[in-house]
Write a protein that binds this DNA or RNA. Sequence first.
DNA 1: GAAGTTTATAGAACGTGTTCTACTTCTGCC
DNA 2: GGCAGAAGTAGAACACGTTCTATAAACTTC
Lengths: 205, 205
Amino acid sequence: MTASSKPRADALNVLSGEELSSAAQRERRKRIVDATIALASKGGFDAVQMRAVAERADVALGTLYRYFPSKVHLLVSSLGVELERAQEKMDRTSIPGDNAYERVLFVLGRITRGLQRNPHLTEAMTRAFTFADASAGAEVDNVARLMERMFTRAMSEEEPTDEHKAIARVISDVWLSNLVAWVTRRATASDVATRLELTVRLLLA
Amino acid sequence: MTASSKPRADALNVLSGEELSSAAQRERRKRIVDATIALASKGGFDAVQMRAVAERADVALGTLYRYFPSKVHLLVSSLGVELERAQEKMDRTSIPGDNAYERVLFVLGRITRGLQRNPHLTEAMTRAFTFADASAGAEVDNVARLMERMFTRAMSEEEPTDEHKAIARVISDVWLSNLVAWVTRRATASDVATRLELTVRLLLA
DNA sequence: GAAGTTTATAGAACGTGTTCTACTTCTGCC
DNA sequence: GGCAGAAGTAGAACACGTTCTATAAACTTC
């Protein structure tokens, strides 16, 4: 099938090759993450089976493992992708509220409701995140930073102070813990809302 | 081996039977939990393999599963046992400090250092705790309650107020999250100490 | 103390994450 | 255009959590 006789084939190969090498890989990676998110959305953590992800992304199992060395890496990386999307969306809208307290609550409420709209996906990602071991430390750190940034931005548009960073960290911890309680059905959505509000009040009011 | 002809055999059977039935089961359960803790202490979450626990506790695999329906149940239950021990020890000593802030920090420091003395065990238990799904909700709730009680007691000896309960919950969340960061080597012991102190200061100073 | 029920045992079997092997296809380089 | 090495593929193989089966022991009840 290769057009071996045309003089242009060379240039064409180089060009599409260029794009292929990096671009085909970007493309594969994207397919993998998309497949992960689709499967997670449908059936949660357990439904994200490596063979199923590979098949759906149309790559071999070995390739999947070359891109993501474990299921946890895969899910935490996907969480990172999702959080970045959420952050971008958040950056495009202005956050209402007269003070840090109101603004943080707004952001928390909005993102929490967003996650609760897709319970299986949330379950898959939070469980992977909290189950991650040291080998996924980098991915986990990345996500943790994204979360903290989200809350420091909500608190003020200035460069965050150390105190604001500390508060953001506490909020991240409480938020995650409540999300986990919610996905494991130990807390209702309104329990979560109440506790988050209480927490933010303790910290920022 | 059964003394079938003696009139007392009956009573004895009933008695030792009584003790056996329940007591043999208590005994088995204890052996299982001990084996779990021993294996976890040696090699963490991965070393707690169901076959290994069963063998070490000298019960069949099926029996292990009859007592604890999954590895997570097993580890979270063991965490409950450990926390109760820690609480009892805590109850026997008086907590120094002039105010809630100092007292909570004292308790936090003490229990954190205790856990850090056995990193593998801590890793096994915290990972099981945060990985638990809905089916282990009861066990997880039990542990969460133990944690919160530990901190409300530190804050004051009175019946805890709602605010104190809320604060205890936040501290529990932050504490757990830092413990996880520590076992996954994303935070050092002194990072953890610093963050806990900062958190308690935000909440109680 | 015998029948029936519950609990325990040994071990096979199964599912899914992970690793390994043998082979093919790309890609960059001369 | 041909070659060396990297990347991808198909699928077997392995490990460990979990379930299942067949049998034996322990307990309860009459």
